[in-house]
Write a protein that binds this DNA or RNA. Structure first.
Lengths: 237, 237
DNA sequence: CGACGAGTTGAATGACGTCAAACACAGTGG
DNA sequence: CCACTGTGTTTGACGTCATTCAACTCGTCG
């Protein structure tokens, strides 16, 4: 599963314009604006094989990038090293949202972990479209706002909470959605670990720690929450 | 200087509508959009004394907040504790930009360190104005995008760089702006430390470390960069 | 002068990452 | 059916970096 880093890909594996609908509600917010169809006209969809470089850190960001389906790892690729994965994204999700708007460069390397489909929205036609469709522009503002909030929260966690507290928060929020206090881990533990800003070894230890304290029960990829209150307390204020 | 946390302030110390121009170029980007004047009609300006609570974490964010002038500390206020300052902001700067757009809550407490003037833009009229003035909406998106990039960079730093590297990057970027390789620290070292995600003690040690290695020379609040290349190297790739 | 806050320094503690070995499990080919 | 292999996880030992606690200095203000 650990995919080697492929050499630079010319951006043209399978280039095809698509007018068929892209998943805008999932990307821009629940109430799909009717104008979103406009974006389909701008979007360029392409497919990439596993191991391909989707984004390269430091290159100019001329287009917004959406991961339609498949999985990519984001992080810093060092020549020789496998890839320091900060987070693992599964489509549909924004892959490069902010950088193009700020005329900046991509902030991290993104490597396809499976075969993926991505859509690109070149920034200049997009800007023009947003000026013509103000409601859409507001949706982008809101989407970016959610991103800011997400990052802000993660920053606070990393600064002020230790590994146990971060795991506790994560389990709490994951369990909050479901009816039963049982969660089945969807991705590899090493990916969960890097998402939480710790090593797989530490995650393992923290899992054991929490189960020894009777807060959770772990069995393979199944985690049962035994003491939600104590868990929330450990997660912090 | 360490200001005690004042009890809850009703939001009406000095309420005054102002049609006089607010510093939009500094807030929304260099090329001031002509439409920005529209925002003045929405803005409510108020003044607060030192020690006042400007934002309270967890309260609903119904208006964007701009710090016009003065200084506020952002962080988590604990009853009893002085204030864990994540960062110190000096106006003009956005104080609460993202949360209102996402119908969210303020993510941190903000306490006035000096007497301050803030402007508030209630979200509903603002949304309406953005729909009428799409260019303005795009400016907000861009502003938010810069915020995302800033947060992303900070997150990477915190995850992957040790204290010395973080300090080196900070000094490097601070010194980049000025003609001479000398910088005078504008805020207390303890605030710089928490901005860099370390304790004042660690900052002090790192300062000494760097000067022992001949990279910088420290004298009180004056830091002279002696070896910019080595400093940049230490800062990482 | 004494009190206070900011900064520095040292020693002790602790949290987490790194390295290495062992283990579990699935897939594969003999 | 059974070794064999590769991947993912667990566990332990160990080292390192940074925080914590405490003492001490320095400058300012009463």
């Amino acid at each position: 599963m650990n995919v080697a880093i492929a050499p630079a890909e010319p951006a043209s594996s399978v280039s095809a314009r698509r007018t068929s609908g892209l998943p805008w509600p999932a990307l821009l917010g629940p109430q799909a604006p009717a104008d979103a169809a406009e974006l389909d006209k701008i979007a360029l969809v392409r497919s990439l094989p596993a191991g391909a470089t989707v984004l390269r850190r430091g290159t100019a960001a001329r287009a917004l990038v959406v991961l339609l389906d498949g999985q990519v790892g984001c992080g810093w690729a060092q020549p020789g090293r496998p890839l320091v994965t900060d987070r693992l994204l599964t489509g549909p999700v924004w892959l490069g949202l902010a950088a193009p708007f700020a005329r900046g460069q991509h902030g991290c390397d993104a490597i396809a972990q499976s075969s993926v489909r991505v859509a690109e929205l070149p920034i200049d036609p997009l800007r023009a479209a947003l000026v013509r469709h103000p409601v859409l522009a507001v949706r982008f503002t809101e989407t970016m706002a959610r991103e800011v909030i997400r990052l802000d929260a993660r920053l606070h966690e990393l600064m002020h909470k230790d590994a146990a507290a971060r795991l506790a928060t994560w389990i709490t929020t994951q369990a909050a959605d479901r009816p039963q206090p049982v969660l089945r881990l969807a991705s590899r533990k090493r990916d969960i670990a890097s998402q939480l800003g710790m090593t797989p070894e530490t995650l393992s230890r923290m899992m054991r720690n929490l189960s020894e304290r009777g807060l959770i029960a772990v069995e393979g990829y199944t985690v049962r929450v035994l003491d939600p209150t104590a868990l929330q307390g450990l997660a912090g204020p």
